[in-house]
Every structure is written in C-alpha cells, then in structure tokens.
Design a protein around this nucleic acid. Sequence first.
DNA 1: CGAATCATGATTAATTTTGAGCAATTCAGA
DNA 2: TCTGAATTGCTCAAAATTAATCATGATTCG
Lengths: 257, 257
Amino acid sequence: MNAPLAEDRLQRILNLLARHGSLRTTALTEALGVSGATTRRDLDTLERRGLIRKMHGGAALASQDQGYQDRAALHQGRKTDLAQTALGLIRPGQTVYLDAGTTARSVAQALRRTPELTRTLRVVTHGIDVAYELNGECPLYVVGGEVYGSTFSLTGPDALDTVRRYRYDLFLVGCTSIDPTRGPTNSNLIEAQQKAAIIAQSTRTALIADSSKWGPPGFATFARFDQLRDWVTDHAPADARAAFEAHGVQVHQPQLR
Amino acid sequence: MNAPLAEDRLQRILNLLARHGSLRTTALTEALGVSGATTRRDLDTLERRGLIRKMHGGAALASQDQGYQDRAALHQGRKTDLAQTALGLIRPGQTVYLDAGTTARSVAQALRRTPELTRTLRVVTHGIDVAYELNGECPLYVVGGEVYGSTFSLTGPDALDTVRRYRYDLFLVGCTSIDPTRGPTNSNLIEAQQKAAIIAQSTRTALIADSSKWGPPGFATFARFDQLRDWVTDHAPADARAAFEAHGVQVHQPQLR
DNA sequence: CGAATCATGATTAATTTTGAGCAATTCAGA
DNA sequence: TCTGAATTGCTCAAAATTAATCATGATTCG
C-alpha cells in the first residue's frame, strides 16, 4: 500500500489552512486521519519552515497571502510578547545596547510604551529604525557607519571603531539563526563582526530570538553559548533549552499568556 | 466543528473596535460569546501589545503612530517644491551631504521619487529620518553621535570627528533663520558647529531655506554668505536676493507653473 | 542479514485556557 | 462627601491542549 508520504500530508495541511484561514488541531487530526501527536509534529515542522504560525489550540498560515492582514498582526503579537519579556532584563539607569533588525525594533516599540523605565536609560544602537522609534524617549546614541540595505543597520570600520570606545551594561542582540553546536549566527559577516565587538564591551549579553531560529545552521558565528547570559524566546524546545542551560544561560519566556 | 481560536478572537476584538471606535466590556463579552473574565484577559493582552487602550468600562483602539506622520504632513506643499528645486543642483555620481531636519527630509523624499539619479549618488547624513527615508535607495552613510531630541539629528564629538574624515561634493544645508547681515543661523550651538565643519569639508554648499527664514535674527551663525554657492528658496524678497547675490551666491526658485 | 534510524501512535505529565466566586476599586448621582 | 451599583483584579478548579517519553513497526544503510 502506498500510504501518503509525510510531505504530502504537510501540503494538505497548507491547503486546508489556505481554505479556512485557521484551524484547530483536533479538526486537522480528524481531517488527516492520523494521531494528534503526528499532527502536532507536522505543525512543528511547518512552523520551522516559516510557513505557518502555531498557537494554542491550532494554527494559521504565516503569510498574509489571502488578504488577511491579521496574520501579520499575529506574527507581530508574538514579537511584541518577546520584546516585552526582554524588557524584564533591563534595570533603570543602565546603558543598553540595542541591536538592529526587526526584533530589536519591536523591543524599541515596547520601550516606547514604558516611558518610566525608558527615561532612565541611555540607549546605544546601530539600527536606524530603532533610533527612529526611540527618538526623544531617552538619551540616545547612534553608531555611525554605512547603511546595510535591508536591515536598516549601520556597519563598517567607523561603526566598529565607535562601538569599541564605550562600555555597555546590557546588550540585547538578535540573530539570523542558532546553530545547536556553535551558537548564534548571522548571515552577514560584517554584522557578525560588529556583534562580537559589542559583546566584548558589554557586561551582560542577552540573545533575543524566537524559536524558529533554532536549528538551521547559519553562516557567521558571533558568540559562543558561554558568552551569553540570557536567552529570550517565545518558546524553548527541550533540546534548545538544554543546550543553553548547559552553558549557564538563563532562558526567559513570556509568562502571561 | 471548528471553534474559533483565541488569536482569532483577539483579531475580532480589533475589528469590532475599528468599526465602533470604542466599546464597553459588557458589549464585547456579549458579542464574543465568552465570559467577562476572558474578555478582560483578551483586552489585557491587546493592551500589552500596544494595540488598544483600556479604560474603566471598556476599551478603544490605540492612536496609531501619529507623532511621526503629523510632523511629516506639516508644510508639505511648499517644501516639496523647494526640495524638487534642490535636486537640480545634484549631479550624478556625486557624494552629497544631506543635513538633518524637516527640510532635508523632504529632499530625501524627493530623491526617493527619482531613483535614476539617486542610485548613482553616495549620500551622507546625520539625520535619522533622512536615513530612514533613503534606506536602500543608494549607498548611504550615517554619521554617529548623540540624538538631539526633536530634530532627529545626530551630534556630538563623535559626529564632528567622523564628519571631518571625509569630503563631500555638495552639502545641502538647512537653517533656523537667516540673519540679513551675518548669514544663516541655527538655534542649537552644537548643530551649528557641525554644519560649519561639514561646510569646511565640502566643495560646494547650498542653503535650502524658505522665505520665512529671512529676517529674524538667530542664535549661532554657522556660515558666512560667501561660503555659500547657492540658495534654494520658494521665494526671494528683493533685499534678500540682493544680499545673497552681493556675495556671489546663486539664487534658485521653483519655476512657476 | 543485522543494526541503526525514522515515523508513528499511545501514555502520562505539564501547561494553558477558561469560567466562577469574591474582595477591592471606580464611577455616578444625591 | 457619601452610598450603591458596576467594574475590575485576583485566586481557584475544571477542561482542553500540548510536550515529553517510550514502544512498535517500517525503512535505510553498511
């Protein structure tokens, strides 16, 4: 008998989701004729590939292809929770280095919503969009350099130079992916170099990366696990959590809902 | 049967609020068919994501991002003409230093509308908003420094240092006011100092300032008239034009339609 | 052929969501 | 300012959902 292969089943899930927008796990289980465990595993892999968004009770398509802009809002919601959790690491009066990138940007937006804390900070960044968000909220320092197109991030020799001239209490860093054996990586070499330099100047470094970053090997490693003090994520798979905690990294997740 | 997911309920709340502006918690509870406790919890998470504002008895949509767009809309019409005229001074392949401030920002927007020219340029700036506008349009260099609150502008010793390390073909500079006898002025001393430093590194400097700037005495002078090569304005009163041309400054105005 | 790997299903423990009850707070009218 | 009603925040327990572990059969590879 030629039972449907796993890939076919995945495709079927995508089709069902495309038709219905979002579905409960139980509904999918019934439709596919497999066990709930398998359905959930399938949803895991689809989420790893960035094709869907899992939530308690079911899943929805990740791309906003069907004109449902709420998918973007869902994705945004997760990032917001992540950002909010990251705020918990910040103490009043600190000098915080905020990375560039969409994750850092959502942290900046979260900061703007808590002006009591933000006013007491000094924030340093090389992200144009981050600076834009935080303008006027607190003492703000922007590293100079060449703008690297898609990420709104300032890099280059000048940026490295500047970064090395100061010290930071806390570095909130993002990444492209997390290599289970080598640590967080970035697809751009120059940015990775810059992150490494900032880590060297920081008392404490916290990695902010959602669970989809775990697994796929990246290009340039910019930190060993033991250089991190915290990992802020939406969700920590068991193996990931173990890898981090084995190096003494504290794992933080959104608590309330 | 496919019961709606929690996230879908959140989206529904947003849709309802978008239609009605604000709603009582009891009305929402009834509309959603869940308990009051759940409704209140949902409102909590939406507020934590910064999407709504909760108040006693109900909730409303959070005002979206107005600080940004208000400023941009200000003086839009005239500034656009001014910016378009300024583009006439730029030659393909040049390295252009673009000032910070609302005037420079509208020049950046004009540049974005003429990608054929912009692609050939290298732009340097210390304006966060300018960089934000031009991101991805051309090689872009941003000077590092401390953000000076309201103007999105990067200043300070690092900025001065960096500025002095390079040379620019054309400096498009704005100002707070033009003192008829002493030249263009800025209300902020540090910014004035920076402008002066950029002028020293530039082959050609063009002042962009609408006619309302003419007359009122300002605070810190950053250039003498004879250091300018061009004045781009919406309208040049006779005495102003005379003052500029007496020092060999060319005056540019938008051509009347 | 045998060992190792993988996908799957079942079981159990942990987590999340939800609704209800109760005290504290806020609001509106006298 | 006082009072009563409405609203909110909180804790707790029940139900649903998910994660982790293990056993089983299929498949792959040496």
